[in-house]
Simulated scan of single mutants.
Amino acid sequence: MDEKDNKQGPQRVDLERFRAVLQKRNIPTRFKVDKYTEDVPAMLRECYIAEVMRRRMQFIDDEATQNHIKKAAKWLTGNCKPGLLLFGTVGNGKSTLARAIGRLIEVLYESTYYDRRKTVRTVSALELADIAKNQPERFDSIKKAELLVIDDVGVEPAVVKVWGNEISPFTEIMYYRYDRVLWTLVTTNLDDEDFYKRYGPRLGDRFTEMFDRIAFENYSYRK
């Protein structure tokens, strides 16, 4: 280093510019509905009704259902967490709402242009365990899906054997999607205590960070 360099002193970084580069590279954009945002609650309601009718059930327009749809619509259109957890007792509309969300996205984003078409992958936790055991390539594609719904978490075997190795399919998928901040919707009958007992505090803590929650405390519609 010559005398001129010594007089100039050590080179310093522009921290504001450095921060801007980091934010641009390290903060993934979570998918959210950006079409007809004011009408999303009404459209989601129609998708919910259509799902109820598809199963030959009677749509019950009670306060609980209205609130669930409203909260889900807010999550779909807002700057919210990448995951949505629908939890509560059996038969009160969690899976119906999850399917309605999937239907809404697929209808809104039907397109001849591939980069705008959105497909929601939906799989039950029980089916996921079987896929992990017998169809590893399909399991990998589900794990990496842009938009994923996992239904009835907690009924699947906690561990399955794949080529002699024990794995926890749900836990593996959640770690993968947590690290990449991927859009994930989960339904479960487990409460917080049951979830921590089954999957452990490490995954439980990540769930707290990753998921917004909608509690389903109403009665079962199957009665």
Score class of each variant (00 low, 15 high):
residue 177 R to E: 06
residue 146 E to F: 01
residue 50 A to R: 15
residue 2 D to S: 05
residue 203 L to I: 15
residue 37 T to F: 02
residue 153 V to H: 03
residue 21 V to Y: 10
residue 119 T to V: 15
residue 35 K to N: 05
residue 98 A to L: 00
residue 49 I to Q: 13
residue 10 P to D: 04
residue 65 T to L: 01
residue 176 Y to Q: 09
residue 113 Y to K: 11
residue 217 E to A: 09
residue 51 E to H: 10
residue 140 D to M: 10
residue 196 Y to N: 09
residue 43 M to R: 14
residue 64 A to M: 01
residue 198 R to D: 01
residue 15 L to V: 15
residue 132 A to Y: 08
residue 67 N to V: 04
residue 217 E to L: 05
residue 100 A to H: 03
residue 140 D to R: 15
residue 92 N to Q: 05
residue 112 T to E: 15
residue 30 R to C: 10
residue 192 D to Y: 07
residue 146 E to D: 15
residue 209 E to G: 14
residue 218 N to P: 02
residue 27 I to Q: 13
residue 169 P to S: 06
residue 11 Q to M: 10
residue 36 Y to M: 13
residue 202 R to A: 14
residue 96 T to A: 03
residue 204 G to E: 05
residue 186 V to T: 04
residue 27 I to M: 08
residue 158 A to T: 14
residue 58 Q to H: 03
residue 28 P to Q: 09
residue 122 T to G: 05
residue 22 L to D: 08
residue 84 L to I: 11
residue 204 G to M: 05
residue 124 S to R: 04
residue 183 W to R: 12
residue 183 W to C: 11
residue 182 L to W: 02
residue 202 R to I: 09
residue 159 V to E: 13
residue 140 D to P: 00
residue 185 L to N: 02
residue 16 E to C: 05
residue 16 E to Q: 14
residue 17 R to K: 14
residue 74 K to Q: 13
residue 45 R to S: 05
residue 132 A to E: 07
residue 39 D to Q: 12
residue 85 L to W: 12
residue 150 I to R: 06
residue 171 T to H: 10
residue 108 L to V: 10
residue 47 C to R: 14
residue 143 K to M: 15
residue 54 R to L: 12
residue 208 T to C: 02
residue 54 R to T: 08
residue 217 E to F: 01
residue 48 Y to F: 15
residue 197 K to E: 12
residue 183 W to H: 11
residue 166 E to L: 11
residue 91 G to D: 00
residue 137 E to K: 13
residue 106 E to K: 07
residue 210 M to T: 07
residue 167 I to S: 06
residue 160 V to I: 13
residue 120 V to G: 05
residue 14 D to C: 06
residue 62 D to Q: 06
residue 50 A to Y: 03
residue 4 K to V: 10
residue 78 G to C: 11
